[in-house]
Design a protein around this nucleic acid. Sequence first.
DNA 1: CGCGCTATTCAACAATCGTTGAATAGCCGC
DNA 2: GCGGCTATTCAACGATTGTTGAATAGCGCG
Lengths: 215, 215
Amino acid sequence: MDDQTRPRPERILDAAEELFALHGYDGVTLRQIARRAGVDVALASYHFGKKMDLFQAVFERRAAFLNQARRDALHRCQREAGEPGPTLEQIIEAFLRPLELAQETGDAGWRHYLALIAYINNSPYWGPKMMSHLFDELVQEFIAALAKALPGARREDLYWCYHNLSGALTLTLAQTKRIDNLSGGLCRSQDLQAAYDHMIPFVAAGFREVCANRR
Amino acid sequence: MDDQTRPRPERILDAAEELFALHGYDGVTLRQIARRAGVDVALASYHFGKKMDLFQAVFERRAAFLNQARRDALHRCQREAGEPGPTLEQIIEAFLRPLELAQETGDAGWRHYLALIAYINNSPYWGPKMMSHLFDELVQEFIAALAKALPGARREDLYWCYHNLSGALTLTLAQTKRIDNLSGGLCRSQDLQAAYDHMIPFVAAGFREVCANRR
DNA sequence: CGCGCTATTCAACAATCGTTGAATAGCCGC
DNA sequence: GCGGCTATTCAACGATTGTTGAATAGCGCG
């Protein structure tokens, strides 16, 4: 099932990550996770405590790395842009491209993790509880950069535009294969690069339309 | 808890709708639903069969009405536009505005239902199984209208743009209150009208940027 | 009133859940 | 090779789950 050579706690996290992303917190039992990891049920409790602690551990395992990658991308494009600051496209690129590490590394775990983020972010129950704590600081930094690239924009408009960006991204990360069906195979959910190639100009144009001159 | 005068089957659907939207299919027990509806546990099984049949019944109860409202809106704007066809903004407006009936009618049930649609659409497990069957035909009709408004657009680009629209809409319907927190109360998740006022020009500009002249 | 039917409740079932305490295995330092 | 510690498994607990069959209530119709 899972790579039998890796340490067992990691195998448990991997299995939990994949199953939680697919079925949600309540849709997965500790026994399913243990079976997929090839270990006994009690081992998950031994290493991670209660079920919810395991959920939290899965959520937090890759968060710091991901945040750092996105922060680095933002700072790099800010450094290279100099005084006038980066363009809209460059900022959004820094927001999205680091998420491709899923397929860069060929690690399926990253794909599952991003789907889990999508599940949490779209959930009225988990979203408010879990997203703010880990991602708010970074998001605010990105919004500040966007505000600088759109002088005179109303803050309200900026947030609504970010909301649209976040939604498009969330559905992408969820990997629902719905676009595969709709397009008759023309588009593939797994192809994050194609998704971002279309999302970046799409979102940049949206920001400009809503946050510039209008209203 | 629930309006005690309505017929019991409807009260069960209402309770299930609200709880499924908040916690997902596996996050809700029949006993919670029954308690919220003020009836015995066995009554849900008596009227709707298995738990999954109840889930399906909730999902389908409002689908036909919703589809008809959106189809009417599309046909009306096509009729009024005449030969050249409606603008991008008019098509997207027809796609989104009917979803405001949630707050038009003041019926909280519609708000829960739309959050349930968001939950299903964003789920890698439920999405492919349940969305296509009920919504594909209508979506394809909208995409055809968009294609006509964007002559020369590549089909692949059209579907990716629709994907972005669908994502922004899905996160809006999920009502996660995340934008409320991020914006410090400046934006409110419940205010669908403000969400669509920003989403329509945002998405229209995105379609134009990606599907016109580019690449 | 009383029959017949539907709606609703009651009570209970086997199955499965998360969790835990005791038992076993693996392994490093001495 | 043998104590000591950690990792892992085994076995079992009470609680809760979806589901069902029997019992009860409600009610229209003759």
